[in-house]
Simulated scan of single mutants.
Amino acid sequence: MTAPIRVLICDDQTLIRTGLATIIDAQPDLEVVGECGDGRAAVELAQRLKPDMVVMDVRMPVLDGIEATRLLAGAGVADPVKVLVVTTFNLDEYVYEALRAGASGFLLKDAPPAQLLHGIRTVATGAALLAPEVTRKLVGRYASRIRPTEDTPDNVALTPRELEVLRLIADGQSNSEIAATLVISQETVKTYVSRILTKLDLRDRVQAVVYAYRNGLVT
């Protein structure tokens, strides 16, 4: 049998932690390996327990979820842990910062249990959780705050077609929508997406969207 996905829960509200743990532990393919109430404890527990992923609150004492996410999944982390951010407010600016810090996606705390479980399984596989329309709203709202970096598109070996696909990803289009726009197959789109992530050393589509906005590919 496949080993269950090992989950660490970090939320400063005891009732929220208990509720999440109850929902997650009821699934045969999921296992809660630890709980904590602040970001510092999450980092320490993750280093000790080696979970497959962390369900992370944003606003917490001692160390908030953004900084904890950066320490667990940010650039330069030797053994990054996948992080699913949960928040009370839709499109909260702190969530955007958490995505930049390395989180693989986010959910609202009032999401139904089925959506939570789907999110955990999705992130655990290495995929990004954000739906295309959510990606567009989230990054578009805060794009003006993103400063361009020195790592401009001219410094990477993306082909014109790959740049085109990257722009469409940043615009929030799904693989099927990109395929229709470019009149190519979805398998071809998947190949392009994989090449883009590899060439730019990005983990998932969320990071690809951020990269595109940071480098002025989308306005």
Rank of each mutant, 00 (worst) to 15 (best):
A127Y: 10
A157P: 03
L166N: 05
S176M: 10
I120C: 07
A127W: 05
A103Q: 02
I120T: 08
P148G: 04
A157Q: 12
E164A: 08
A98Q: 03
D171G: 05
G102M: 05
L168T: 03
L107G: 02
A128C: 04
L107K: 00
L108Y: 03
T152E: 12
L84C: 13
P153Q: 06
A98C: 09
I169M: 05
A180M: 10
S104A: 14
L84S: 12
T152S: 15
E93H: 13
A131I: 02
E164S: 11
E177A: 15
R161C: 00
A157W: 04
A170Q: 04
Q173R: 10
Y96H: 14
S174I: 11
R147A: 14
A143V: 11
A170W: 02
G172A: 11
A157S: 09
S104G: 13
E97A: 10
P113Y: 02
V134S: 06
S174N: 11
V134T: 15
L158A: 13
T149V: 06
V165E: 04
A179H: 07
P113L: 01
T152D: 14
V134K: 01
N90A: 15
E162Q: 15
V86G: 01
V156K: 04
D92N: 12
L107T: 00
G105A: 10
A128I: 02
F89M: 13
I120G: 07
R136D: 09
T152V: 12
R136Q: 13
I146W: 04
P153D: 12
Y142K: 06
L163S: 02
Q115W: 06
K109F: 10
H118A: 04
V85M: 12
F106E: 01
S144H: 11
D171P: 01
D154P: 10
Y94E: 12
A111C: 13
T149I: 05
K109T: 08
R147Y: 09
L158P: 12
V123N: 05
A143M: 11
R121A: 03
A103K: 02
P132I: 09
D151C: 08
A101S: 11
V134G: 09
T135W: 00
D154F: 10
T181V: 10
